[in-house]
Amino acid sequence: MVRHYNNALPRPSTANKKLIPILPPEVKVKRGPISLNKVWYRGSSGRLIVIGQHITQLFKFERITLDYHHALEVQGYTERLITEAMRNGDRHIPTMELADFYIHEKQLVHKLFKVLVPRYIDYTDSFTKLWRLSPALSREDIITGKVRHADKGCLELKGNPLPPIEPPKYISRKSYLTNVLLDAAKKDFYASKQFSDNQTSKKKVETSAWLENFNSSLELISIYRNQISDIKHI
């Protein structure tokens, strides 16, 4: 009879059967698989079910909060699933099996092929973004060392309709018209006779000189403003 223990030879892996695009540098791949153990889903086959739960949530809400080390793992799987859907389309049987496995709510399979694929079809970067959040703890727990939480992360799909997490970028206001005019007024003022005369009398009465300068600059601004209004009328 055949022996019962595992005496299988090292088999050739199924490597290089496909042509797979490289994952962008935002996705961290330089590590082994992370075990996402839960009570009811154990082992390597249960791990994929947990990832599937996260992916359905992500496709549904487009932004989710979860443990950071879960998010690291989920990010790669979502990117690969979307690229597979982009490459092969919805008439390909193995990709539909993949989508059926990872997406537990079946109405979201339509969303993958009809909404997400056309959205990312011109992308050269990653489709997802990961943010690191602080672990939500009460202060007592931290002091007593009762609970040890993992870091939290926020995973989102790019191009979502939700308000952005990122604060709006700082735009320099130097190019605004009023600021340009003010700079020009300053230059003119420093070059003028009034300034040089004031500077000689500055040592005697400093406070009065400052006030005069300020008033004169205001006058200049008003003159410029009138000029602009004239131009507009023309």
């Binding site: 797979i20 490289i22 994952l23 086959s45 994929l48 790669g76």
Partner: peptide, 26 residues
């Protein structure tokens, strides 16, 4: 029945990615 076996090994996308060599490297 006997061994700890990954039933869904064919769906493991990242395992597949790590065993493959991507296009850009080829």
């Amino acid at each position: 029945h006997n061994r700890h076996h990954n039933e869904y090994e064919q769906f493991d996308l990242m395992k597949e990615y790590r065993s493959h060599i991507p296009e850009d490297a080829q």
